[in-house]
């Protein structure tokens, strides 16, 4: 079973993410801040899904940090944001994929499936 680390400051979106991914057969670890994720990186997930707006760090900076850390650089990062400029910003930060909020669940699941399967192939 693939594991997702989902980092988002909004409780509502964390809740709905749990519904979406558990129903699709994933294990999901929810983090409401960058600090919470970074302190629990002892077992790496199969994908990081990051919001841009986090309480303790910009999600793009968190993405850069994960991509420059040898232990996590190979793990795909999907950036999620309501910011319309997210596409260009996320690409510059080294994210593997980007999705604007609000999203279609089937698109989200399809991107996550592609990113997690390509990693192991």
């Amino acid at each position: 079973m693939k594991t997702i680390a989902f980092v988002e400051d909004d409780l509502g979106i964390l809740d709905v993410a749990r519904f979406i991914f558990e129903r699709a057969g994933y294990t999901i670890r929810l983090h409401h801040s960058a600090g919470s994720l970074l302190s629990q990186l002892h077992s790496n997930p199969d994908i990081f899904i990051l919001d841009k707006q986090l309480p303790d760090m910009d999600g793009l900076d968190l993405c850069r940090r994960l991509k420059t850390n040898a232990d996590t650089s190979a793990i795909p990062v999907l950036m999620l944001s309501a910011n319309p400029q997210i596409k260009s910003l996320a690409s510059a930060a080294g994210a593997d994929a980007v999705m604007e909020k609000p999203f279609e669940i089937k698109d989200l699941l399809s991107v996550v499936s592609q990113l997690t399967s390509s990693r192991h192939n």
């Binding site: 909004d10 509502g12 979106i13 709905v16 519904f19 979406i20 309501a82 909020k101 609000p102």
Partner: peptide, 10 residues
């Protein structure tokens, strides 16, 4: 957009 994301997903 933040609550809309949750509403749309639900």
């Amino acid at each position: 957009k933040t609550p809309l994301t949750s509403v749309k997903a639900y």
